[in-house]
Design a protein around this nucleic acid. Structure first.
Length: 291
DNA sequence: CACTTGACCTGTCCGC
DNA sequence: TGCGGACAGGTCAAGT
């Protein structure tokens, strides 16, 4: 599930909610979700203060006062939901919601903070939380295989040269390749390609410089809009307060097969590209590019 | 080598 | 209603 805008939204929420708090206790309900040894947890996590929360690509980092960090990947269905003792309501309360029902059957790890809990929920169990020394989580170390951040100033030149390393790959697969550009997943790949009028199966070598420049702008536009809407909720995603994101109301093609294209009113189709469900307007995004 | 497919899991939806 | 199969936002290893 979570792509860059969703992870960024969670980061912003957690920063506000848990910075300065101490981790008092950890309940691991599914070992695969928290594959760490007891000594590391006892020595570097328990009793330590949360001093900073960061995001790189789709990964989240919670830095602690011990100079260790929790590195988190939410994969498809991961959630990090904060519930303060003060925000729980009685059954039937008008603000009664998801947060009242936690833990539930998808809860994998529970972090106990002072007067609050942080729930790591993950229906499909693909996600994980690892204990890592903070100094290893620099771009040089841990993220050497990741491409540039789309919203950082340096991205266009690096993005272009990374793209050209896989000239015979189709552009959709390249956008999903985290070593080319970081943080894009299926939703934002489809939406960016639509805005730039590029067919997802177009080979990278067949893209003009002009199209690549346009694509960079589209990626930024789409990601910024989504962050401003709190991300996309297709099924599972919620932010740190258990609330859904509304970006999909503004999406042009994603999950809109059989609806009409907002630009030309042709019928939007869904095909399979790079093994993934892919949405496009067959009229705006021609299979054969004519520059 | 470069690129594509299957596996990891659970849940839901659709067609018979 | 029941049941099998396809599919779901990510990422690797294995396969072609």
């Amino acid at each position: 599930m979570p792509e860059l805008p969703e992870v960024e939204t969670i980061k912003l929420g957690l920063t506000k909610l848990i910075t300065g708090k101490k981790i008092l206790k950890i309940d691991v309900l599914n070992l695969k979700s928290f594959p760490n040894n007891k000594a590391d947890v006892d020595n570097f996590i328990l009793g330590k203060e949360i001093i900073n929360i960061r995001r790189r690509a789709k990964l989240l980092m919670i830095d602690l006062s011990s100079n260790y960090s929790l590195l988190i990947h939410l994969k498809m269905t991961g959630q990090l939901v904060y519930v303060s003792d003060d925000t729980r309501f009685g059954a039937g309360h008008p603000n009664d919601s998801l947060i009242n029902d936690l833990p539930d059957r998808s809860t994998r790890v529970i972090f106990e903070l002072s007067r609050a809990k942080l729930f790591f929920n993950d229906q499909r169990k693909f996600g994980w939380i690892k204990v890592i020394p903070t100094e290893l989580l620099s771009d040089q170390e841990y993220f050497s295989k990741h491409g540039p951040e789309p919203l950082a100033d340096i991205s266009p030149a690096v993005f272009k040269s990374n793209l050209k390393k896989h000239p015979r790959s189709n552009i959709k697969a390249s956008l999903l390749d985290q070593s080319v550009i970081a943080g894009i997943g299926n939703i934002y790949a489809d939406e960016s390609l639509f805005l730039s009028k590029i067919h997802p199966k177009t080979l990278v070598k067949d893209l003009s410089n002009q199209k690549i420049n346009s694509l960079i702008n589209s990626i930024r536009q789409v990601l910024e809009l989504s962050i401003s809407k709190g991300g996309s909720t297709d099924r599972n995603y919620v932010n740190a307060e258990g609330k859904k994101g509304s970006y999909l109301e503004f999406a042009n093609v994603f999950r809109r097969e059989n609806q009409s294209c907002p630009v030309c009113h042709s019928t939007i189709i869904k095909i399979r590209v790079a093994g993934r469900g892919t949405h496009l307007c067959p009229n705006c995004q021609k299979a054969t590019m004519v520059e």
